[in-house]
Design a protein around this nucleic acid. Structure first.
Lengths: 250, 250
DNA sequence: GAAATAGTGTCTTTAAGACAGTATGTG
DNA sequence: CACATACTGTCTTAAAGACACTATTTC
């Protein structure tokens, strides 16, 4: 009978699992690292944490943590962001998994990188969460989606020493962000609730690091239906005030 | 002095690494799984291996292996493909990392999924590599890039029981393949050295699961410069023979 | 009213879809 | 010569870029 055959196989598997010893093989450690991105004042910013422990003591690292056994990767990334930056409720997307054997000098650590886009206000709040957490301006040395490592600078403009392969992780996050912008106007995730179309255009220009055509940008965004006008306007801007828009949830 | 300060910090870090005990924390196992894709006869195909061991004994799984400590993720994926399918020299791309806590009943296993596109001939050779390896037709139940799990069927058309979360991995591989096709005519990676433009169009139509406009498809592909005409033609086709093209390496 | 940016209307350019019509093999 | 598919040329449509022009606020 098919049914008892299936039952028998299940029992067999249950017995196997009972006696299975998971400690047979050497295993790597698994960590998550989070690239928290924002864009304002014509530059891209990320959140970095200065390391007070070895290895790479003194260098700047992405907020991260080791993955606990009963916890999903997404949960570990959310926990890292909560503990290191005091942020919760942020939409996190998996970016890439970095697994070069010697990327951490202690031992084999495989890092699952995540990235998230937040608006300027939440970003500033996160940067003030702890004294060793800082908002750092990114230096992207390549155009379009060429790719490559990306460095960070402190408030005074001095280059920061990054820990591990975090310059590569930052590079991939920027590349992914630029790529996404080509087919999804996601810029408003980096803006507050209300924004003008030109605010949005400046965010896109900052991310892509090139000027965009104003006319076709407006047409494209309005036609996409992803933003809706609110009827309200800017105030006190020294020129004709622009209409304020809002992200249109579907 | 800055220099000796740096030197001192290095020595400090060296001492730290000397005394570091990596066995302090419980660690997950890390595996790689490879989605080998091809497209022919109007359908997408992948390579699956029947499991002869617990867990999920008897079910069909993607070729995979545990990652060894001194080995990169890319190398582990290439090794899995070599050992399970006898293929080497295939271009592998990382797809996504699956890390749900209970995706493997034995223990916590985090799977870094890879995917690769191969032509029909290499695919057939791989499928005949071992008796428990089979070329399986994929059933994609969703249009465009909606996403979701994807099942497989055996040569007789009967649905196969897939191991672990491999239906989800297959689903993401198909979604990624479709997405890539929108901005890169990569279809020729699934064809042999010489092919007609209509061969290429059929591959694209198979992947996207919809008809394409012949005129604009030809224009787009020829204008892209990614293929070049060879001057040679098909023979014995019962109609005017089409010119054979070749992938133009840059 | 000057300055500055918001917003509108229209022309041009480019790419995609539609489709008619010609070309060239096999049987 | 019939048939099937390859290939070419042209018309239409839609989106993007360019640009002229009007609108509305602060100073």
């Amino acid at each position: 009978m098919v049914r008892s055959g299936k039952r028998e196989a299940d029992d067999d598997e249950a017995r196997f699992l009972e006696s299975y010893d998971p400690s047979t093989f050497d295993r790597p450690s698994v960590a998550v690292d989070v690239v928290l991105l924002s864009a304002f004042e014509g530059a891209l910013y990320t959140l970095l944490v200065q390391r007070h422990e070895h290895p790479h003591k003194g260098r700047w690292a992405l907020p991260g943590t080791f993955v606990r056994l009963p916890e999903s990767l997404d949960d570990a990334a959310a926990r890292a962001l909560r503990d290191k930056a005091g942020l919760s409720g942020v939409f996190l997307e998996q970016l890439f998994t970095f697994g070069a054997p010697r990327r951490d000098p202690r031992m084999r650590v495989i890092a699952v990188a995540y990235y998230a886009r937040v608006d300027r206000r939440r970003f500033a709040a996160a940067a003030e969460h702890k004294p060793d957490v800082a908002a750092c301006r990114l230096e992207v040395p390549w155009p379009d989606e060429e790719g490559g490592p990306v460095g960070a600078r402190d408030a005074a403009g001095a280059p920061l020493a990054l820990a591990f392969d975090h310059a590569d992780i930052l590079g991939l996050a920027v590349k992914r962000l630029r790529g996404k912008l080509d087919y999804a106007p996601i810029g408003f995730q980096l803006l507050g609730e209300l924004f003008t179309l030109y605010d949005l255009q400046r965010v896109h220009e900052t991310i892509l690091d090139r000027k965009l055509n104003k006319d076709s940008f407006r047409r494209r965004i309005v036609d996409s239906g992803l933003v809706k006008p609110t009827g309200r306007s800017q105030r006190g801007v020294g020129h004709r005030p622009a209409e304020l828009y809002r992200f249109a949830k579907k």
